[in-house]
Design a protein around this nucleic acid. Structure first.
Lengths: 199, 199
DNA sequence: CGCGACGTTGATTTGCCTCAACGATTGTGG
DNA sequence: CCACAATCGTTGAGGCAAATCAACGTCGCG
């Protein structure tokens, strides 16, 4: 069971680097396998966050909750082979402003910031890996900023489908809407219009 | 003259690390001082970009130009102590999709990707520096995505004023509007409403 | 079975855009 | 140095895409 989850992490690392089996044995010692139930909060607002999570199985949503106006905004989803945390809080050692919730029962491989630093000392190839990961995330966010400015809601929806293939049945409609920055009603109408123009 | 510009870079590095004078002497050898005129394009769309630029003096704008619809979108501004490039292209070794233009005559300290790698080998403290820089940029972009979703145009304008203090007289109104994702007319009206509610 | 959560549809409202006109400022060539 | 054009910011009128508000059907769970 557990072995499978670590195998996914191994494969994931090797998309950007080339770890030996020995090196990965070291990695395993630094990661912790954690199980969460549906609706569990992996990260709660207000907590100070030192941990980031690799999704071995399941589906997460990172979001900002606007208490006053009773609405929330999805920053990102995470399925298998994605990473999640409140990276804003993680990098700046501040209390979380975002939350991470489980949209499915999930199995996560977690690592703390300090542990990661030690691991990277032992396995330098991982420094490169995490740098690439950060660069890619940066680029993805920049693209999203641009897309939010220049694309219509429908185009952004299509971009979402490309960014998260096959995720649609795993998340609620209103959660997708809150990712796109529109209302569930609008998304519903967009879907309808697309279905009609299809055939 | 030139010394002053490098002094600014030295100070800038030392906001996040602690370089010795000797280490900074090494840095100097890797950076190139470049002068640009008003309206010059530092980065043109289509070019492959290996360079990033530190603004020692002047003011730049990074933007995406939508040729078909004859409009553009500002990704970021850069004044003294900011860095500019098409980082999307820079990190992925792809042709630039963004452009960087000079809103003022500017003096930039440039460094190429490969040179930076060599420099970081010689001065390891800079690895940490550039990692922090990337983390901060990542966080800033995430904040902006959230802000674009939850804040009104007026709130985003106020956030812009905080993000870029004192930059307002240095850039055109319509360029600020294109950063906020609104039209110049809308920005004009927001300014008017703010002026009235002030006193 | 019955309730609550969710998605859809319709009617209405609204914030921002588009289009158009008009000063103010800047820069340029005669 | 002035005249004129171009650029930019502002203001008003009208339109549109998406939000809001409300009602209803459906699905899943206790």
């Amino acid at each position: 069971m557990a072995a499978l989850h670590y195998t996914l992490l191994f494969q994931h690392f090797n998309r950007y680097t080339a770890l030996s089996v020995e090196e990965f044995e070291i990695c395993k010692r630094y990661f912790k396998e954690e199980e969460f139930r549906l609706h569990d909060l992996v990260v709660k607002a207000g907590q100070t966050i030192y941990t980031q999570y690799f999704v071995a199985q399941g589906c997460l949503r990172t979001f900002f909750k606007d208490e006053q106006r009773d609405r929330d905004f999805t920053v990102q989803f995470a399925v298998e082979e994605w990473w999640a945390s409140d990276f804003m809080a993680y990098y700046n050692n501040q209390p979380a402003t975002l939350q991470v919730e489980c949209l499915e029962p999930s199995i996560l491989l977690s690592i703390e910031k300090k542990q990661l630093a030690l691991l990277q000392k032992e396995v330098p190839a991982l420094e490169t890996f995490f740098l690439r990961k950060l660069e890619n995330a940066f680029v993805a966010f920049q693209k999203r900023i641009l897309s939010n400015m220049k694309d219509t809601a429908e185009e952004r929806y299509e971009e979402f489908l490309r960014q998260y293939p096959n995720i649609e049945p795993r998340v609620k409609n209103f959660q997708i809407a809150s990712y796109l920055g529109i209302t569930p009603e609008s998304l519903s109408r967009i879907r309808k219009a697309r279905a009609q123009s299809q055939n």
